[in-house]
Computed example of a mutant assay.
Amino acid sequence: MGGMRTLNLVFRPVLLQDAPLLHELYLACPGYFTLIGMEPPGLEDVVRDLVTLQNDPRRRAFLILEEDEVVGYVDYKLHYPEAQDATLSLLLIREDRQGQGLGRRALAHLMGHLAGAERLYAVVYGNNPRAKAFFQGQGFRHVKDGGPALSWYVREL
């Protein structure tokens, strides 16, 4: 029965020892880093970011797995910008797996697990029309641009 993939996505909290897995994911997404105008971070940068993340009680980050394979990453902050909000700073799907509905399913999963939040903001970095179209297609509306390289979207939960 080739070709059928399970619909089960697993969200696993990112731990410091997952830095190599996250680094691998970043390397598999060169287009994203080109869009935001930077090189993919090195492994030591990923480790430093994960340490920062673990020291911020409001931040949450998960590896997204499908059948034990890392297919994406999500990073968001609770109670930001306001107490009843959450802000999605990164939803990244591995480039060879984009266009298969994984981002949509990951976002739906996240929205279903944000207990207590009334709004979800999404931040789009760089000139990324595909990401903007994705969030608008998921019911987000454009709120403001924070400079040339930053667009904010919001959706009521």
Rank of each mutant, 00 (worst) to 15 (best):
I93K: 01
Y125C: 13
S151W: 07
L92W: 00
G3W: 12
V47W: 15
G103Y: 04
A28G: 13
R105N: 07
V10P: 07
L78K: 10
L92E: 01
L7F: 01
H113I: 01
G37V: 13
L88F: 12
D56N: 15
A117M: 03
G37P: 05
I93D: 00
P41E: 12
A149H: 15
N127K: 14
M111C: 10
T34R: 10
P13W: 13
D68P: 02
V51P: 01
G146Q: 14
G112K: 10
G139Y: 02
Y80H: 05
A149T: 11
E82I: 03
G31K: 13
L27W: 08
L92H: 02
D85A: 13
E66P: 00
R155F: 05
S151Y: 08
G2V: 06
A83T: 12
V143L: 14
A106T: 00
A117F: 06
C29A: 14
Q98T: 03
C29Q: 09
P57S: 10
Q100Y: 10
G139L: 01
V47K: 15
G37D: 12
L78D: 13
P129K: 12
R12W: 02
T34A: 14
D85C: 06
D145E: 10
A86N: 03
G31Q: 13
R119K: 08
L43G: 02
V154W: 07
V154T: 11
D145R: 15
A122M: 09
R119F: 09
Y32T: 07
A131G: 14
E118I: 01
A131W: 13
P30G: 14
H113S: 09
F62K: 09
F140G: 00
A122E: 10
L114R: 12
P30V: 03
T6F: 00
D85E: 07
N127S: 12
R12C: 10
G126S: 02
H23G: 08
L65A: 05
V47G: 05
L92M: 15
G31I: 06
F62W: 08
E66C: 02
D75N: 14
W152R: 14
M1P: 11
